[in-house]
């Protein structure tokens, strides 16, 4: 199979979200997609259900802009990859471009059962980063799950924490204001979502 170097297009931004089924990959994707729509942008997404969802590798493709044609991101075309579990970032390598892809990773290690049974050690985080490094422009890793547990007692808010970090560093073509408005509209003012988002954006790192 083949690929050509992606020609820069006028209006296209590709976000690829991954993690382990049940971690909130789809929810995060839905929030970013809705926020982009609320800014009047055109959006295409692709997800998988069924068998793929039972604690396996999960992917959500999100394409913003009218020049995107397919719902799946072509190879070497991701602008941002988000991995809610670091090991899951590695299957995304073919979508990455050394010159532009920015990676956001949660440091939480969810050890696959296969590793436990076969006594395969989970690679340490530096090893994972090392593998990814030659394929992306930048890696940002946060203790998002740990922060979420600290602040809410629940790991599921890690996705919103990472979103906050992306907004802080302006990694997405959407304003922080639109995102928090979108979260408020979809989930209400109460609950932990806005608090976590806010704390991630204000945090020092």
């Amino acid at each position: 199979m083949a690929e050509t170097k992606s020609k820069p297009k006028a209006d296209e931004f590709n976000i690829l979200i991954t993690g382990v089924g049940g971690q909130g990959v789809m929810t995060l994707g839905a929030i970013i997609a809705q926020a982009a729509i609320n800014e009047g942008k055109e959006v295409r997404t692709s997800e998988l259900h069924g068998l793929a969802k039972r604690f396996g590798h999960t992917e959500f493709h999100l394409r913003i802009g009218k020049d995107a044609k397919t719902t799946i991101i072509p190879n070497k075309s991701a602008d941002v990859i988000i991995a809610l579990e670091p090991l899951e970032s590695l299957p995304l390598i073919k979508y990455c471009d050394k010159e532009k892809t920015v990676a956001f990773l949660d440091s939480i290690q969810i050890k696959p059962t296969k590793m436990d049974i076969k006594e395969i050690p989970y690679p340490n985080l530096e090893e994972i980063k090392e593998k990814l490094k030659s394929h992306v422009k930048e890696i940002n890793m946060y203790d998002a799950s740990a922060e979420a547990v600290k602040q809410t007692g629940k790991r599921v808010y890690a996705n919103i924490y990472l979103l906050g970090k992306m907004l802080k560093y302006k990694a997405l073509p959407i304003s922080a204001r639109t995102v928090s408005k979108t979260i408020e509209k979809e989930f209400g003012k109460e609950g932990f979502n806005l608090k976590i988002l806010d704390s991630a954006m204000k945090g020092k790192d």
Partner: peptide
């Protein structure tokens, strides 16, 4: 057409469970 970049073979595949 340049060769396609493939996911390296040593990348761990997390099966559904």
């Amino acid at each position: 057409i340049p060769e396609e970049k493939k996911t390296p073979v040593d990348v761990f595949k997390r099966d559904p469970i």
